[in-house]
């Protein structure tokens, strides 16, 4: 894989990284170098993201992408991957900061994502030489680059005393704004993020909460781009009823039987047809949802 090296001593080395204490001595880059000089926004959070967190992560990423703001994250599983993927889905630009060398992309299953980011003129950055293994201690280190590259960061979900809290401390040290989405009270990954809010992170419930904090973002117009993969499907009249119900809420065949007065055979026939035509899909526990 071809990569470029940017030394701390070089003029091209981005100022925002030079400024931080313990600045990386060099950066290894693959992809669109220009992103280093744009005003980006970081999205961080737990690897054990819940459905609630996933929804929020997707929503805020999307809204940021609509305003043409590049998203920075760490390409770990969970929150990071979702942020990157959502960004790509809506043709946004994204920077991934790795905690290992380019020969040891971690986690391995994100290798595809890695390639996609580069393909979509995104950027992958690391301070480690190509043969460095994904060591445990690299990741907290990597987080300081994530925050340095971002104007501010958004915490989606975080457990108490997690890697995310290290990122947040880095951000504070670097004088970056920290935004946090309130976590669920009964969820272990809600505890940490709620604590951050108590300690001064900006409570974020709306995209405006983030945008209004940055003059450079405020003038950007919201331009919604269509989801890359979505095709406009013409809904067959036959499917209308089920489609409308599923649009509101995903549900199992059982619940559909209750909501409609179709017979079991009819429902199963229609659902299979809709599935074949790519209108609906079934999740792992048997609920159907609109694709």
């Amino acid at each position: 894989m071809k990569y470029k090296i940017l030394k701390l001593t070089q003029d091209e080395f981005p100022d925002k990284l030079k400024k931080i204490e313990n600045a990386p001595k060099q950066l290894y880059l693959i992809g669109n170098k220009d992103l280093l000089f744009e005003d980006c926004f970081g999205i961080v959070g737990t690897r054990r993201i819940t459905d609630y967190g996933k929804q929020n992560c997707e929503f805020f990423t999307r809204e940021l992408v609509f305003r043409n703001i590049p998203i920075v994250s760490g390409m770990a599983i969970g929150t990071d991957s979702i942020a990157h993927k959502t960004c790509l889905e809506y043709s946004g630009k994204t920077i991934a900061v790795l905690g290992s060398g380019f020969d040891n992309v971690f986690p391995e299953e994100n290798l595809e994502l890695f390639e996609k980011i580069i393909e979509a003129s995104g950027l992958v950055v690391t301070e480690y030489e190509k043969d460095v293994k994904p060591l445990k201690e690299n990741f907290p280190q990597r987080n300081r680059i994530v925050t340095a590259l971002s104007e501010g960061i958004l915490v989606v979900e975080a457990a108490f005393r997690s890697g995310t809290s290290i990122t947040v401390n880095n951000a504070k040290k670097q004088g970056k704004k920290v935004f946090a989405i309130p976590g669920k009270l009964d969820s272990c990954v809600g505890v940490g993020v709620n604590k951050m809010i108590k300690q001064g992170a900006i409570l974020t419930t709306d995209i405006q909460d983030i945008i209004s904090g940055f003059p450079q973002f405020e003038h950007r117009l919201r331009k919604s781009t269509k989801k890359k993969t979505s095709k406009s499907v013409k809904i067959n009249e036959e499917y209308r009823k089920i489609y409308e119900i599923l649009e509101m809420k995903s549900m199992s065949i059982e619940e559909l039987l209750q909501e409609t007065n179709f017979s079991f055979k009819e429902v199963i026939k229609l659902l299979t047809k809709m599935e074949i035509e790519g209108v609906v899909e079934q999740d792992l526990i048997g609920n159907y949802k609109i694709k």
Partner: peptide, 16 residues
């Protein structure tokens, strides 16, 4: 995973 009653705490990798 996917339950409406309780939140799943597994990572995608664990599920796979």
């Amino acid at each position: 995973y996917g339950s409406k009653i309780k939140e799943c705490t597994c990572t995608e990798r664990q599920r796979i």
